[in-house]
Design a protein around this nucleic acid. Structure first.
Length: 552
RNA sequence: GCCCCCGUAGCUCAGGGGAUAGAGCAAAGGUUUCCUAAACCUUGUGCCGCAGGUUCGAAUCCUGCCGGGGGCACCA
């Protein structure tokens, strides 16, 4: 029995009590089922009686007693206790808790996946860096977290697209081109240009591949350098992200948005909605009518389209492509955009609360040897995604970026991330997985065909087996909550608890028969438990985009 | 000035209204004749920033203040 099923049993009991006329309350669809911290409070507990007491006008303990009487009859429930002010504490039989291990092994990689977001089409946009340089640490946080969010949403049943918006149009691109061109001629970058060492490398690479480029007239040459540099820089970002395990379904180009006429079409749509007006020669969107501080300019007085105009067109483009909900993941330095993005949706006739979501991520710092790392090998004064991966590897980088809620600033301690100790959670979790794989390999070596033998869950009576089973049972709820709240950090946190439960089990419960021992049903049951745990660790790591090694 | 985020053990941080607030690190000690010791066990630590409020119940929700970080554009 899982906590979900127990919750249903509690609801059914409430319905019974109400039907019997003992109390009069609306019957809830689901109830809170806790795993008590204190062992004396049972395997599971619920405070429903306390919540119901007020509307029922009956004391919590009276309600709890009435419920307990019925719940004691539920198969698998061996004890129901009314405790404290009116908590219901449950104890379940080993057999009923243990069924789960078999179900997990059967479900395989699907275990933990649910239907809570089925039918929802979600667009997750993240990173969206200018193609004018390497991806830095802030981008890297989103590369890990954004991808994990998409994975978790998908696991909850949503249809989810990962999207990267390429700002390949505008002044920054020209400055970028000018900087590379200057470097190609051995000159320093312009004052407002780009400076890192990568600019010089890029210039050298372009000159090598396009020998005549420095001879064309300077205005054409500027464009040629800009385009060549753009192409290479974008390819570099794409390559690095693939290496990092973050795959984008769509690379949306700002230029393409303009070239396709989507921007003027968007302006037209917004005009039809009645929120566009002209003032001082510029064209404005009345975002202030929907919570923005001030109205925003779409077309400048000189006729140029603003970046904001592209943004609005891009939003409409996503909606036209059939997404119910668009999620933006932005750095804290962009939090001022939240209201205007919501206002854009409102101006377009949507309900922002339903169609737009903006997640704001705080900044990331790296520490090494007790000092903040500020200099990059590649990019001068910014730290890049590749710098981090060079230092700690993809798994440790992704895991540690996902492990913390995004709304708190994050400091990565590189010294800890390369350690192979408990101080480094990614190894702790991966080690649990590898350890199980080793046990399963040994079982095979001993020719123990556990999947072919009857699995008797009732044999899993050790306290540590119960704890492990209850940890396994939590996984689907953890995934659903992570998806609902867009909080993927819940996955690693959970995996660490699960790994602890496994290590304790392993420490106290011998899985394989010793050399002089005969194979028993207990060994078989424990192998099923190991296999189930391995599956959940693997499924959880998969949601993080972190590998589940079979050996370490 | 206005807006967003944070404030929990010596350090780094979890804790989406429930019982006695938790992990890791750091400190000290212990566990392996056979499944991976990258593990496990034991020992100590708290005005949950402050003050009010809502609630049967608040670290959690609301308001105000204090402290720290970030942001305000016909820039991109």
């Amino acid at each position: 029995m899982t906590p979900e099923l127990l919750g249903q049993a509690v609801c059914a009991a409430i319905a019974d009590v109400v039907a019997a006329g003992n109390i009069n309350v609306p019957v809830p669809d689901d109830v809170v089922i806790d795993r008590p911290k204190v062992r004396e409070h049972g395997d599971y507990a619920t405070p429903v009686a306390l919540t119901l007491a007020k509307t029922a006008g009956v004391s919590p303990r009276t309600i709890a007693e009435a419920l307990a009487q019925r719940l004691r009859l539920v198969p698998g429930v061996i004890e129901v206790e009314v405790a404290g002010p009116g908590f219901l504490n449950f104890r379940l039989s080993a057999a009923t808790q243990g069924e789960l291990a078999g179900q997990i092994v059967e479900s395989g990689s699907r275990y933990g996946h649910g239907q809570s977001l089925t039918g929802l089409r979600i667009n997750v946009e993240f990173i969206s860096a200018n193609p004018t340089g390497p991806l830095h640490l802030g981008h890297t946080r989103w590369a890990a977290v954004g991808d994990a969010i998409a994975r978790v949403l998908t696991a909850a049943g949503a249809t989810c697209a990962r999207e990267f918006y390429v700002n390949d149009r505008g002044v920054q691109m020209d400055r970028f081109g000018a900087s590379v061109m200057a470097a190609a001629h051995g000159k320093p970058a312009p004052e407002d240009g780009y400076h890192g060492a990568y600019i010089v490398d890029l210039a050298a690479n372009i000159v090598a591949e396009m020998p005549g480029i420095r001879d064309v007239p300077s205005d054409e040459q500027l464009i040629a350098f800009r385009e060549a540099a753009y192409e290479r820089q974008l390819a570099q970002q794409q390559r690095v992200l693939e290496l990092f395990g973050t795959h984008f379904d769509v690379w949306a180009s700002e230029r393409a948005l303009h070239d396709s006429g989507a921007v003027p079409r968007a302006l037209q749509t917004l005009r039809e909605q009645g929120h566009v007006y002209d003032l001082d020669g510029a064209v404005w969107l009345r975002t202030s009518a929907f919570g923005d501080d001030k109205d925003r300019v779409l077309v400048k007085a000189n006729g140029e389209l603003t970046y904001f105009a592209s943004d609005t067109a891009y939003y409409l483009d996503k909606r036209n492509r059939g997404f119910d909900r668009v999620i933006y993941l932005l750095g804290a330095d962009h939090h001022g955009y939240v209201n205007r993005l919501r206002a854009v949706a409102a101006c377009a006739g949507d309900t922002p609360a339903d169609s737009v979501e903006v997640l704001i991520g705080q900044l990331v710092k790296m520490m090494k040897s007790g000092e903040e790392v500020r200099l990059s090998k590649r990019a001068g004064n910014i730290i890049t995604l590749e710098d981090l991966v060079d230092e700690v590897g993809v798994d440790a980088a992704r895991y540690s970026l996902i492990r913390y809620p995004v709304d708190s600033p994050l400091t990565l301690d590189l010294d800890a991330l390369v350690q192979r100790t408990n101080d480094n959670p990614v190894y702790y979790v991966q080690y649990a997985h590898a350890r199980i794989c080793s046990v399963l390999r040994n079982a095979e070596g001993l020719a123990i065909n556990w999947p072919g033998q009857g699995y008797d869950a009732a044999l899993l009576t050790d306290e540590r087996e119960g704890e492990l089973l209850r940890a396994l049972a939590e996984f689907p709820a953890v995934v659903a909550t992570a998806a609902e709240l867009r909080e993927p950090h819940r996955i690693p946190r959970y995996l660490e608890q699960l790994a602890t439960a496994y290590h304790r089990f392993y420490d106290g419960c011998r899985v394989l028969p010793r050399t002089d021992e005969a194979l028993t049903g207990e060994h078989i049951a424990r192998l099923w438990l190991c296999a189930a745990t391995r599956q959940v660790l693997a499924n959880g790591l998969e949601l993080c985009g972190v590998s589940a090694p079979e050996r370490m």
